[in-house]
Write a protein that binds this DNA or RNA. Structure first.
Lengths: 240, 240, 240, 240
DNA sequence: AATGAATGAGTGTTCATTCAT
DNA sequence: TATGAATGAACACTCATTCAT
């Protein structure tokens, strides 16, 4: 009857639903991130969003729905934005590095949300927890495919892909999770460059290394100028 | 007035306090791990521990105390056990690899607790959250020192130590956090071996590599025989 | 200030008021009957009536008004229809029996409404509760007068009129209230015939019994043919 | 798993459960009777019972449980007390009349509760509604058996037993339901006597009438002296 | 006249904490 | 020391009612 991934709204106007949900989720993400899901009360979310308590229940079935949609948005942003940033990039080494950069910079734009996704998944109802896990896996696969191409095309020596991808993912998440420790020490692009030095470069073949050098030259070492921090373009226009 | 790290007990008999707290914490850790801190009720902890609700308040000031001591125990186990496993090991490469192995195997023996430490730290009162973070940092430093020695003594090329240590730590935690994904694919010792291949080996100098090879020979590739899964000696005898 | 029996409407067009109220009350009666007054929400009434929530407040002052008018309609139907069915009937025994039949068949046509009237009167505001009770009493008086005439004119032996009328009324209501139990066992006209046998016949004098026999002959034992189940003519034409 | 007729209590001491439930139900019955189930809040019940809100949830699963047990008590009192009053009475006519008297006088001792049972059954969860209906049916059967015996043994002419029993039952309930109208006009024993005159006497055979006359002589016309209003002996001793 | 989104006071229920025994 | 019944503040959620459009 009720699919776990669906969130009911009493209100029918789709545009309004989108707007109100955004407004409420923004407040919820902030509060959930600061204080945690259980500590945050629905009334607090309402207050922060500048709406009444009852309104929340016009756009979400219950509190769990709010968390679910919040997490969903984060993961969907990853899933949508990473491929967008890889568009037009052909070389697997370029793709992998750009993928890492993209993931980190998206994380950077959604630090609170990322922390939330990390910490609060288990507060979800069991069926939805799995939905979220699947989405996470899908995102991981994006980096996994880049890595696999590198190896297959001889730019990288064979490695335990499965574990290495996992290291990539935690590396990207860490920018949000341990941000308090990192942000004093690195800029985002330094962080990514260092990550590539640790987790990509050592495994490259000569061929692969050439590609990386070329990329570095072209990007001035992943400087922020070339790869500016970029807000994930939210509701993009049609003909973009 | 109240030091953040201290937990009051109404009961004075130190031995009894230790025993009862152990009994209660064991139940609490299990429940907190399964269902989370906020979902778990004090009455459930009491029921699982086989004591009355009131008794918990004889040995802990409040529910937060229970979580704090639970997390504390986990981190203290790391802090106590890792050095114990490094005793007598001189060579820095040996130390680093053994340290990774030790950390992972301790995590393996306390999977639930580790997940708990990861997820529930933010449920603590702010002052205690920092205490726990410090403990975590101290543990990280154990690996950090091994890594630093490797580099300083020329077994490893210079790398961004700070980031690499962080990768080490997340690698060890991942055995608990992503256990559901990993445990079907690797044994614990495979996992550690692969981790060393990914996160240590690439950075070794020729000298360092020789040491690693020798270690591998001596340990049959970190086989479980040589480095048996080992229960972290829980309430160890006095004269150890 | 506010007479208890009056229900305000924002809308002035009397015809429209009548139509809309009918539409809304029909939905309300159904829902109130099924689920009860408190369980039913104004939004549900609106949905079932095919109008917006706000519209209800254009035609009723509040939710209590809706219940009041719903109950009122039921009782007014009794009050209007029973005399209509007695028109032209002269003999008191005929009148009493026809009155019982009429009441039962009106109840049969408004089963849900009758149950509602029985069960939900106390959900009304106190002042209106009395208004409804008075209406009920007035209806009872209709049967009471028939009974009284029977006795006075020597068709019936003296009995405790007050109690017997009450038995008549509960007998008629029971067709709706205990319908689930009765409708498998009797047709409506059987039910009425049996009721007359139990609650009228025993008290008749010889004279009265003759009248009843004659009535029975004329009506084929209150067969459905002669006294067809009849929808209480709802929005009756003017010149009826 | 959860039988509809069972009500969970957190408290284990059976004696205490009995006492507290009694205390709470007494308050609940009064409030439910006065204002109805939905209007009455749990906090009001708690206040009237002189306990805290939370305590109610130690002895009842939810508000529905409170209503259910309240209704259950009423019906169980009928079921228990009517047979008790019939003990030792052999003659069917005596039994029937005594049964009516017993039922009415029990109703008289539980007027509020009876009204509640009548009005609030539909506020129960569906499964429990049926449990209550069954209990009601069982009580009806008590009178039904008396009536049947009267007919079978030739004290009464054959009648539609099913309908007549139903009239008996509503007659008894009416003492509570329409008490406001009746109590000014009759004493309880007058009421019962009149009821017997209307609903029993007319159907008696000569034999049956003799029995009724004898009963009347023996009881001085059901005077209150002979059949005193009697509190249903609540927690009766074992060897009664 | 009609809509339906918005409100917020009020409800049932939970659970950390207390305390008499 | 240990119990577990009792407390009551706090929360998620509902729904009659309002009002801008």
């Amino acid at each position: 009857m009720k699919s776990p991934g669906h969130v009911e709204s009493v209100v029918t106007d789709a545009k309004l639903v989108e707007q109100r949900r955004g407004q409420i989720l923004k407040a919820a993400v902030k509060l959930f991130s600061e204080k945690g899901y259980y500590i945050t009360t629905v009334q607090q979310i309402a207050a922060k969003a500048g709406v009444s308590t009852g309104l929340i229940y016009q756009y979400f079935g219950d509190k769990d729905d709010v968390l679910f949609l919040a997490l969903n948005r984060v993961l969907e942003t990853y899933e949508r934005e990473i491929p967008r940033r890889l568009e037009g990039i052909e070389h697997p080494v370029d793709q992998l590095c750009t993928g890492l950069w993209a993931y980190c910079s998206i994380v950077d734009g959604m630090r609170e949300e990322t922390v939330l996704a990390y910490r609060s998944t288990k507060s979800l109802r069991a069926d939805r927890r799995n939905l979220i896990k699947e989405k996470e896996t899908k995102t991981n696969r994006l980096l996994g495919e880049c890595l696999h191409a590198c190896i297959e095309q001889g730019h990288m020596n064979p490695v335990n892909e499965y574990l290495l991808v996992y290291q990539y993912v935690t590396f990207c998440h860490a920018w949000a999770l341990k941000g308090w420790a990192f942000r004093g020490k690195f800029t985002l692009s330094d962080y990514v460059s260092e990550g590539i030095a640790l987790l990509v470069e050592p495994f490259l073949t000569a061929k692969g290394r050439t590609a990386l050098d070329s990329l570095r030259r072209r990007t001035n070492g992943f400087s922020a100028e070339r790869w500016p921090k970029q807000q994930p373009a939210r509701p993009r226009a049609r003909n973009n």
